[in-house]
């Protein structure tokens, strides 16, 4: 597809020129990352959708500050991560529980898509359950690192943490996940 052939540098150049088609491609390219990270950090799909809208508005207004020689994902990841953190802090101040229910997004009234069907598998359920017990930041780190395929350095750039902190947190989070999923990992 033509969309996938456009490099981040070309895409950002076209976006900066105000090309509507380039913005469409950017949304299609970055929305999975934004949505998945948001869904892992905030409470439920409705809030994740709000985060998506907020993030893309921020991307649009701050696009001039993006360095086109750098990849887009860490920059978009950083805006998403900071937006989610700000929301979590706001929710914490308001005294509302922040932990999302692992099946919240499955209770959506829309028709279940293939992702919902896939999530109904036992391993997926158990993984989500184990993930929900981690801190929101650790969930974001694991999602960016393993789901979105960012490198440790890119995750560090996205979260503003030192690379060694990212490595340590991912190491600890992974160990916790392994511990909780041990029976399933051994059975398979």
């Amino acid at each position: 597809m033509a969309e996938t052939r456009i490099t981040d540098a070309d895409l950002s150049r076209r976006c900066r020129q105000g090309d509507p088609e380039a913005w469409r491609i950017l949304i299609r390219r970055c929305s999975p990352l934004v949505y998945r990270v948001a869904l892992r950090m905030v409470a439920g799909p409705a809030e994740a959708e709000d985060v998506c809208q907020e993030v893309f508005m921020k991307i649009h207004s701050a696009f001039d500050t993006f360095d086109p020689t750098r990849p887009l994902s860490p920059w978009v990841g950083r805006i998403t991560y900071n937006t989610c953190l700000r929301r979590l802090k706001g929710v914490a101040r308001a005294g509302v529980p922040t932990e999302p229910s692992r099946f919240d997004w499955m209770e959506d009234d829309r028709q279940p898509g293939p992702e919902v069907m896939a999530a109904r598998s036992e391993a997926g359920d158990l993984l989500l359950e184990a993930m929900d017990r981690l801190a929101a930041q650790d969930r974001a780190l694991l999602t960016m690192r393993y789901r979105e395929g960012l490198s440790d350095t890119e995750v560090a750039e996205a979260t503003g943490m030192p690379v060694n902190t990212v490595k340590t947190r991912i190491f600890r989070a992974r160990r916790l996940l392994k511990k909780r999923l041990a029976p399933q990992l051994k059975d398979e």
Binding site: W23, R36, Q53, R110, A119
Partner: peptide, 24 residues
């Protein structure tokens, strides 16, 4: 493998369409 295939796979189509409409 579990983490790489962690659901959901894609954001809802309605959301992407709304984002596209608003931003464009």
């Amino acid at each position: 493998a579990l983490l790489a295939n962690m659901p959901p796979d894609q954001p809802p189509q309605e959301l992407v369409a709304a984002l596209e409409a608003a931003l464009v």
